[in-house]
Design a binder for these strands. Sequence first.
DNA 1: CTGAAAGCGCTAACAA
DNA 2: TTGTTAGCGCTTTCAG
Lengths: 355, 355
Amino acid sequence: MPATIRDVARASGVHISTVSRTFSAPHLVNPETRSRVLACAEHLGYRPNRAARALITGRTHNIGLMVADIANPFFPPLIKAAESQARHRDYHIFVTDTNEDPAVEEELVHALAKQVDGLLLCSPRMSNDLIQQLSREVPLVVVNRHVTGLPSVVMDVGQGARLAIEHLSGLGHRDIALLGGPRGSWTNREIRRAAGNAARAVGATLTVLGPNPPTEDGGLAMAEQVQRSGVTAVLAYNDLMAIGLIERLDSLGVRVPSDISVVGIDDIALSRLTRPKLTTVATPTAAAGRAAVDMLLAHDPSSPRGRSIAGDGRRTTAQVTLQTELVIRDSTGPGPHRPADPGDAAAAAPDGVAS
Amino acid sequence: MPATIRDVARASGVHISTVSRTFSAPHLVNPETRSRVLACAEHLGYRPNRAARALITGRTHNIGLMVADIANPFFPPLIKAAESQARHRDYHIFVTDTNEDPAVEEELVHALAKQVDGLLLCSPRMSNDLIQQLSREVPLVVVNRHVTGLPSVVMDVGQGARLAIEHLSGLGHRDIALLGGPRGSWTNREIRRAAGNAARAVGATLTVLGPNPPTEDGGLAMAEQVQRSGVTAVLAYNDLMAIGLIERLDSLGVRVPSDISVVGIDDIALSRLTRPKLTTVATPTAAAGRAAVDMLLAHDPSSPRGRSIAGDGRRTTAQVTLQTELVIRDSTGPGPHRPADPGDAAAAAPDGVAS
DNA sequence: CTGAAAGCGCTAACAA
DNA sequence: TTGTTAGCGCTTTCAG
């Protein structure tokens, strides 16, 4: 049986409220009493029961983290960073996998609401309306998406997509395909918008292919269509799709980058290990995990369920946008239309970074 | 403000204990009353507060899952499967990352003990003694390791290592290196033992190199030593190390599999995507995650903190061993000593499975 | 600075 | 079948 506050009180000869104060408001208790209580607690292996404490304080010291697919290599670094950040602030993290299913997402928010001080929704597939509505039940921070009125952390994939298109254009590519991601993905819309604008600016044509599942298979399945489309370069919604695409192109006899250049997005660990190594847009996933936790815990400590309040009493809705970078590796090479200055992007050092 | 049991009682004109029964023992309440209560609950968006319930029942309906490194691709499929299994049994999962640090592990067990009904320790680095001692505080299930008296789920990596050595021997390799994993890893000892025995049985010499960190870098760092050692084949502690090794060997001008054959262990998703595709021992990680959750929840429901009890009242300590298989891909090829029957393993179909 | 008392949301005997 | 009562482990007024 684990020791309770009563055991400690009895052992140290004080009332339970004094033991309570020793842990939750140490400055209110006489140093001598305090050290005696602490000694007894230590000896009995006592730890305050957080659930009981939560019942009365309203703060659980738990956080929920919802991701679409734990096995998607994009998420583990984010989860790891969030868990670490939370733990250092004395919080524990519930991790849940929604299988890209909006219905599961909603149910999970309800199920976890009472057990956490807030929820991190990573790349949620629910509608904006629903997310806003759910945010009345429990504080929410949204990652990889903008939802009006809610704090969010996004990676600037738009900028990344632009850099990718400019890189390809600089290499002499004018016919580029965009391998789209899942329908309803904010990231996908962002990439599409930015890539479209960038292509227009550099005078390239952009063919959008999709939507597709954001997986290796999603890329595999599109290889023939890419081949038929006659493009000389592809920007994929993420690295996994890019890798699947390259894989299948290879078995179709299409070489990367000599026949077709491919750029991914995310810079998952894997992208450094494939042959050819993948040119990709690096997104700072670990930083996003930390930032999301920080935003959630930035609430006024005295108002358990409140939103961040600015000094003048107005609500502030923080939006963090993290920069992305283009990492040039081996899956992109010269295209049919040589650029004005041949010594430009094409000559960039391998594994170089352009931002 | 979330609705409490009292709100529902008031709205439906019954006592709170009737509302309580409606949710935790529906058969004890009149069907008409029940549906009225349910309707009110639904209308108010009421959900029982699990923390409050746990306080009195002793069951939190939470599980803790401790892994050494979330970002290690071996773990995500296990976490995903465990989370899914737990959720379908109405449990939530705390996920924590210990950074391969035994001290963090111990602290985390204490910290989570009161908040969970049990803990899954995946590849823990703590001593057996400590684990046994901690198991008196909270039910523990150990994954990837045997601890006397505790339920455990292990993959039969010994069998896998034997298959790998036999495969290499069958290809004509007689000088084989074993790239060891981290010190203190049960899996590592098991591989080493089985590989040693198998090598002896087939008349090959086994050079053990290590210990090494279980990462890509761990493999990278050993490439030169492998080259110098003069072996023609390598069995690595895991796929990550195998991939790192191949990577560096390649840049040293050593080709895989023509110069050196390499076998990994785990069959992470990545191993299918590298060039050459990795021959490896597949470990059923998802099955392990599910099995571990099942073992933890297999306790007698009436004894919140008890161990599994056999019919005759004796304790049973379940040990699940999951089979592994050899997946032959492209990183292994013929060695200098041709086998007796050339049409044997060397001719196995690509991506074939031998078990 | 410390104790007494009330109560967080809920379940579990026990009566009625 | 339902209500009453006590209390899980803890924090938080309010007195003293």
